[in-house]
């Protein structure tokens, strides 16, 4: 890889909590194969998993677009869900609107967005109520 990047795209199926996380698992494998530092792989995979699960739980699914550059990984998770009315509130640890059937599966700690913030080197949330949300996670590899 001299210039340019490796691009990967995945569909994130709606309401499929059970298979959610498969995109992040394959990205993790890919980064490992490329010889990326294990700590960076973990940061990337965890942030991506949280964003992917959020798209499934809160937004009827969406799409993941991943760019692997020489010096960074950029992950965009887009959905056409309800949007986040108050991002500052949503970012707080413990804040959740997850319904009971989702909590029964172990989600709903209100820790997904805080985890993304913690593990990503940069986190951008572009959201509009009634339109959808795009979460962009960047992890620098150098």
């Amino acid at each position: 890889m001299t210039e340019g990047c490796l691009e990967l795209n995945y569909d994130i199926p709606a309401n499929d909590f059970l298979h959610a996380g498969e995109a992040s698992s394959s990205v993790k494998k890919m980064l490992n194969q490329l010889g990326v530092d294990p700590d960076k792989v973990k940061k990337t995979a965890i942030s991506m998993y949280e964003a992917e699960i959020n798209a499934v739980i809160h937004a009827d699914g969406g799409a993941a677009h991943i760019e692997i550059w020489k010096d960074k990984v950029v992950i965009k998770i887009c959905d056409k869900g309800p949007g986040i009315p108050n991002v500052e509130l949503a970012m707080q640890e413990g804040y959740t609107t997850a319904p009971d059937h989702v909590r029964d599966m172990g989600f709903g700690a209100g820790m997904g967005l805080p985890n993304m913030k913690r593990y990503a080197d940069s986190l951008d949330i572009d959201t509009a109520v009634g339109k959808g949300t795009t979460v962009t996670i960047t992890v620098f590899l150098k």
Binding site: F17, G21, M105, G106, F107, M111, P114, N115
Partner: peptide, 25 residues
């Protein structure tokens, strides 16, 4: 048993005890 909590606090090499048995574990 809170998956995001585990995601942020469990360490590599831990034995993770959970009552969940769905695919997400």
């Amino acid at each position: 048993d809170l998956l995001s909590w585990v995601m942020s606090h469990a360490s590599k090499g831990d034995a993770w005890i959970t009552v969940h048995t769905n695919l997400n574990i």
